[in-house]
Design a binder for these strands. Structure first.
Lengths: 337, 337
DNA sequence: CGATTCCATGGAATCGATTCCACAACGGTG
DNA sequence: CACCGTTGTGGAATCGATTCCATGGAATCG
């Protein structure tokens, strides 16, 4: 059951392995006769070159590594899809790793990918620079996506976190909300930190209630969104509007509102960070801070390709867009402007 | 910038490459002295073995290929997550390919994965056996998951499609529905075919209206769910209940109901195939045909491992479970039992 | 105490494709 | 007709890790 090698092809075609290789890779000069014979032999034998052997000799593997925190998060699923499709346009295969929001798994995957000698790496990193020694040592061209690591000399494609959050808070205060509950992301991620900082700044700017109890620290997973909603709604002076820092936490939080019979849009206003298709289902639909995920993935690949080619591309920040839907109506119950 | 090889380690440790390899792979006998020296040298140099070279010599790559139709479908995202986590327990790296519900991309990925000499393949296949020659030729241990290809000698882990659909139809007819609209999946997939067949059988069994117009053929993506809902709701005698064959089409269909001001659960009953977290958000929540996706992924990996070990594992069919929620209330408007 | 086993080790072969280098054949030019 | 450049080709080296085989020395046995 040994698979056929280039030598088998060469033998059958009556040429040397060198010539067979030249024909199949289409590079140097080869005679018409040789070309025909080799192509026929290869087709007949069902020859499939061993990528390992090829990558060993060449320097490149035509493979990029993609390290994401959680593929079940629709935002990252969309991102993975966009990256993978764009990469395949450049004949790159995507090696995908799911860190499961865990630093340990992130490091394990990083190690494996470097062992696999990926030509480049796209990552939405977690934690501190220290855990990413490999990348930082410049071992492999890298691009950060969505999240970044401070102080790392690595270009990134991110969303305008601050702008998005500021727009949302201004929108809510303009509707008359003064007590806005914020379900934040983990402070071990740049997005978690930036969004929380932006929230605090926007609260200060708009004069909304600056009450530490109105901020709950979640972990970007839906259970923590539910926990956050419970905690905030149980406050002596509960918020009249909720803002959650990602889609999964929004799902958890909306679930709690339903549980308690709080009608979104009527009894409480709600804004979610990230737009996912399912949010349009809710009735009323959720107001969201949306991004062009497709562009983010595409750009990440483009920057990586540039880096692999030896260039030093600049980081990109993509705009956020507030999409106002039914969950933040003009006249929230009991909250006149 | 050439990365360090085992020879560098050997030189620094004052031993031969052979001994260094033995120490690092921990196999044959080595002296305490050699072990220490090699480990130290490896650590100091930050040695990371080249996986290409290793796989070339050994037969295995410690890599499995995962070929899915669409990672943006939450069902497949969950499945990918489960498979990837289970595989990593066995020290297998998952090479992920997104066929994008396209046969051509499926074949392209199949080819690349075989070139990469994956040790095994888990696939949710599309189309006919003919397009999967490589797998069928027994080139690599393979397991089908969710979907199968008829006539292929490949074990599969699937859900009890027929049972799930039958339960749903019986549930709806028990509530008094006689006109049930069905948004089917593509007939190029086994799941699409089996579910549609089961729907027809259940209609016959329960005596519900057997009207060809009540079946719409979609493609498992949300736009087709929307198209299907429009088509069905525009019928002269529209259905009083809708059943959609996957979660994305359900999202599309529910969106159309919202658009038209049809209250789910009140004006129209709705059952979705596949349970996703977002469905619990709807108010009322959706009645669904649910599966243990985690078990499905886990089992697929376990079967594959067995196959790689030379065994011939049997296919597994996992049970479906009807979870009744608010979208199919006991007394649907205008449809007394 | 001589013979045999065992252990640790290094040299060399190996995996499969690519590529450097050398060489032969050929056509064209001075 | 000798010389040179071009073209097509094969042999051999190469990539990096593993593993077969041979060897020398230590340990064990009769």
């Amino acid at each position: 059951m040994r698979s056929t090698t280039i030598k088998d092809v060469a033998r059958k075609a009556g040429v040397s392995a060198a010539t067979a290789s030249r024909v199949l890779s289409g590079h140097s000069a080869t005679s018409e006769d040789a070309r025909q014979a080799v192509r026929e032999a290869a087709a007949e034998l069902g020859f499939r070159p061993n990528a390992q052997a090829r990558s060993l000799r060449k320097t490149s593997t035509q493979t990029i590594g993609l390290l994401l925190p959680d593929i079940r998060n629709p935002f990252f699923a969309d991102l993975a899809h966009a990256i993978e499709q764009r990469a395949s346009e450049f004949q790159y295969l995507t090696l995908f790793g799911n860190a499961n929001e865990s630093q340990e798994q992130q490091e394990r995957y990083l190690d494996v990918m470097l062992s696999q000698r990926v030509d480049g790496l796209i990552a939405a990193p977690q934690g501190e620079a220290s855990s990413l020694v490999g990348i930082l040592a410049g071992e492999v061209p890298t691009v950060f996506v969505d999240r970044v690591v401070d102080g790392a000399p690595v270009p990134g494609v991110t969303a305008d976190n601050a702008g998005g959050i500021a727009d949302a808070v201004r929108h809510l205060t303009a509707l008359g909300h003064r007590r806005i509950g914020y379900i934040a992301g983990p402070q071990s991620t740049s997005t978690g930190r930036e969004r929380l900082q932006a929230f605090r700044a926007a609260v200060a700017e708009t004069g909304a209630d600056d009450d530490g109890d109105l901020v709950f620290l979640g972990d970007f997973q839906s259970a923590s969104g539910a926990a956050g909603a419970r905690r905030l709604l149980d406050l002596p002076m509960p918020p009249t509007a909720l803002l959650a820092a990602d889609s999964l936490m929004s799902i958890g939080a909306v679930g709690v509102c339903n549980e308690r019979g709080l009608a979104i849009g009527t009894d409480i206003a709600f804004v979610a960070y990230d737009d996912i298709e399912a949010f349009t289902l809710l009735n009323p639909a959720l107001t969201v801070i949306a991004h062009d995920v497709h562009a983010m993935g595409r750009l990440a690949v483009d920057l990586l390709i540039a880096e692999i080619a030896g260039e030093s591309p600049e980081s990109v920040v993509l705009p956020s867009r507030l999409i106002i839907r039914g969950s933040t109506p003009s006249l929230p119950g009991g909250n006149p402007a």
